[in-house]
Design a protein around this nucleic acid. Structure first.
Lengths: 197, 197
DNA sequence: AACGCTACCAAGCAAGCGCTTGGTTATCAA
DNA sequence: TTGATAACCAAGCGCTTGCTTGGTAGCGTT
């Protein structure tokens, strides 16, 4: 996964720019884009607010770049997870678990803002991220198609995406409770039901 | 449905306060809470920004009151829809369609901000709205229980809620395309599958 | 030693924000 | 006629915001 950094697609997280992007992602998740100030972001990495604009042209560009890198990273991660699975159903399960971990774990910090802060982006920047997002979604549709999901793959993905992203608002990991794996199992059953003969 | 206005639960939409709440709901849906200014709201009903604070103590109180009234209205509307249906499955379908119309139609203006702007509310105000929301959710769980939905009713509701609220971001009514009714049908099939014997 | 480059500071500007204040007008009951 | 009340205006205060400017310290290269 470091290869993405090496080939220049992703920013080195130890570089000043990378540290700013990480801090921003963290704050955007925690407080939302509008309620996060450039002073917050700068403070998180120990510099003054004005210095941010040596690395980014505007606050919105920070959001845009966070979304860009998150999307690229999430796609690479899911492609890898899908490739390792054998059957169509286990592939679907792997992808579902992959997105659940992106939402709830530390696997892909900032993944949730792809949905929650979408409207904080201007039209032009939305187009930039959307183009990358489309590759991610295409992967999903292929996996759903193979697994012979309910309805057509595009619709199934949309319903599934809603169910998954909403888990952010209610799911909490705790001993004895539902685990991410079990939740993934439930969703596989729900969406990959065998069609009546 | 006007009875809620008559008994004082809901604000008369033709009163100054009611017109402000409607304007605010409309703007919050369109631009989001943070990007809507009190000057926007005041301008929409033709008064100056300072005059708003004759009716509300703060901008956040406007959001809170919008959410309060939207929740009460949505609940009354769904209870009526469920009561008119006969079988458990048709009840479920009625509720799903009811929420879809709340999200996409002009039926319950401002319904979507119950999810999208939840975090714009302070903890104290969240508690106020949550108490009302709980009645709405209880109705859902009863309907899902009766329809013998997949998994347990609470989990099914959460997954369903995610799928439904997310439709806001992709569903568009157009000739020849998927209608809200057809979408409701798909979701009924998905969630009310008969359990294997 | 001189240069160029990256990363940052110190100070602050202009605009926009939520909200306050003191006063005016219209309505209606006593 | 008087007085209370609701609805609103006009003006602006105090604060926060994203962002700009001019300058400096450190580092590697030549």
């Amino acid at each position: 996964m470091d290869s993405l950094v090496a080939c220049g697609e992703l920013t080195d997280p130890s570089s000043p720019r990378g540290r700013l992007l990480n801090a921003a992602a963290h704050l955007f998740v925690e407080k939302g884009f509008a309620r996060t100030t450039v002073r917050d972001i700068a403070g998180e990495v120990g510099i003054l607010s004005g210095s941010i604009f040596h690395h980014f042209r505007s606050k919105e560009e920070i959001l845009c770049q966070v979304m860009r890198e998150v999307t690229l990273f999430a796609r690479a991660r899911m492609a890898q997870a899908a490739a390792q699975a054998s059957s169509p159903t286990s592939k679907l399960r792997a992808c579902i678990l992959c997105e659940l971990e992106a939402i709830h774990g530390r696997a892909v910090p900032g993944f949730t803002i792809l949905v929650s802060e979408w409207r904080s982006l201007s039209g032009k920047n939305q187009a930039v991220v959307l183009a990358l997002r489309e590759e991610y979604e295409q992967l999903w549709r292929e996996v759903l198609e193979e697994a012979e999901s309910v309805a057509d793959p595009a619709l199934a993905r949309r319903l599934l995406q809603g169910a998954l992203s909403h888990t952010y608002h209610w799911f909490r990991q705790k001993d004895g409770g539902l685990s991410l794996g079990e939740l993934a199992d439930e969703l596989v059953v729900l969406f990959s039901r065998p069609k009546p003969a």
